[in-house]
Amino acid sequence: MNLPGGGGGPAARAAAGPPVRPHALEAGRNGAATPGYRHPGAADTLGGHDRPSRDGGVARWEPLRMSVTPVLDLRGIDKSFGSVKVLHDVAFSAYPGEVTALVGDNGAGKTTLVKCIGGIHPFDSGEYRFDGAPARVGSPRDAAALGIEIVHQDLALCENLDIVQNLFLGRERRRGLMLDEAGMEELARGTLAGLSVRTIGSVRQRISTLSGGQRQTVAIARAVLWDSKVVILDEPAAALGVVQTQQVLELVRRLADKGLAVVLISHNMNDVFAVSDRIAALYLGRMAAQVRTSDVTHRQIVELITAGVSGDLGLRR
């Protein structure tokens, strides 16, 4: 028996989620080949494009794609500390389902931009849009309310508290007057499992007993637990060894694949190219370019970082 692949039995129409379908391989030795069904609407990814791609200076037509609205969209951001202007007319967007790498030399303004996004620094002028609508973010609380979670360069976790307490810090669940310890523990475990985190033994371990990578994981899990829409990680791998860095990168990728907009600040070009969909390069406080990673080379990004221009990409002089 070998039913044609295009058929589709009565049970073939899956309502939601990825299709469950017969084996991709021919059946085992004694079995007949299983019929293959087609499933309409195989997973389609988000992907928008706002500029023509330029390879070696040759502009070409891009295929028509559904444009996706950025969840976070900043324009014309200026920021000074006293008389020192740190951000000049910066535009920056982050898209759901994508990792946007924010790169730039030391002092280029990456952390400052992130702190403006997170409501820690007020910016002097510019437009802040969230989910397509103008937003006012005057404090970290405002940013959290929108669903923006930032994992700072200097991780803000409480050393003397355990993982569960850190995940729920300031947002504890209660049952009547009591803390709902069992419920929080269950949620903490579920969140870590949902991120395929296998490196943490007990959720009742104190933060002080965790490695750098495990701490990073807890900080990221906090973002997921609170149903964030945008997660920003400021150099999450800076102090980590290779094994932990790999795990954090894979976690970052998984977050975006779950539909979050992730912003990753990194100086490591392998990390940037390994997981990003877009790269935004800051040069001396100006946004030199925001490009799709699939359109650029390592060399172009290095030039954008160090000179602000690369071929016809980057700042006009």
């Binding site: 070009m269 392998n270 190219f273 390994a274 699939s294 359109d295 080379t297």
Partner: peptide, 23 residues
């Protein structure tokens, strides 16, 4: 891959056709 992604993807950007490469 994780240790050489900058090279892997740079070569991809210059050697693969844009249409299948983009997504």
């Amino acid at each position: 891959y994780l240790g050489s992604a900058a090279q892997v993807r740079s070569v991809l950007a210059t050697n693969a056709l844009a249409a299948p490469r983009e997504r």
